[in-house]
Amino acid sequence: MKLIQKYKLTVNNWCIVQKKTAITALVPPELIFACNSEPFDVNNVIPGSKKYPRNKLCAWTAIWQEMLSKREIDIDSLIVVAGGDCHNALVDGQKVAMSGIPTHFFFYPFDGDPDYLESQLYKLSDFLGNVGSPEKPGQIRELKKLGQKIDKKRADGKISAGDAFRIMISFSDLMGNLDKFKEVISSTKERKIDLKNRVALIGVPPIFHDFHDVARALGLAVVFDELPFEFIRHSGNDIPGIARDYCNYTFARPLDFRIKFLQEELEKRKVDGIIHYTQFACHHMLEDEIMRSNLDYPMLTIQGDLPGNTPEQIKLRLEAFRELLERS
């Protein structure tokens, strides 16, 4: 939450000159910045929020829907990732649109067709007012290289999982300010981290703001975060380049594509086990048995619902999972 608080400080200076565009999941920030808009990932405010949404399936989408519809987040427009990731967002995004916020629906191709994604990116560019700062994607590419270094240092035990996660998850919107974000990345402190019980965290990110720190305190070293890794993995200098790279965004692709990618990545990181985080009422819950049968590691499945601290029941599972890994 520290990052978000810092982010809020910068927003006050920036919203005068730049339009602020909310995003509901990964939308190439390269294009949003290039169109002179400032991305704001609405998910970043949720783990620290105290909201109890009135009408919900998944708390992630329900909370941003309510906050945007009630204008509790100050934005100019919204991009809903409606195809290839979160299906609840398609409905909750329409609720926000009906409340009067200019809203664009963005679809990733299930089959990874770069031409389709390119056409989607051109439509998005029209919605945002077209490219005005073509140098921004190149600057973001450089920042993503720094993000990849953070990820590697974490896997090598030089940066804590919590610190690495907070940086990597912020790559979806780069805090809306490239210079400020670069400063935040540079300020990450290195320290020696015990990497006993190396685990991969797959699925959507946990809705609990302290999850990585709790896992570490309970003796589990998270060395891979599936979704945040996607945030630092893709880039591109122009629309065709962005389309060619982002068409392999694993969350939007068929499960066999995602599983093959995970198998390779987990092998590289020498993980001992997997934590599969699932969100209550999210379609990703249905993937659990497929993940279990295709990923040959001890696996713990946990489920979250509302935001806040990591609940005691989840801590019990984490502790038991650590005991299990130590017995393996």
Binding site: P298, T301, Q313, L316, L324
Partner: peptide, 9 residues
């Protein structure tokens, strides 16, 4: 299989 599930919801 060294695996466990818990129902507590």
């Amino acid at each position: 299989k060294n695996n466990f599930i818990i129902n507590d919801k």
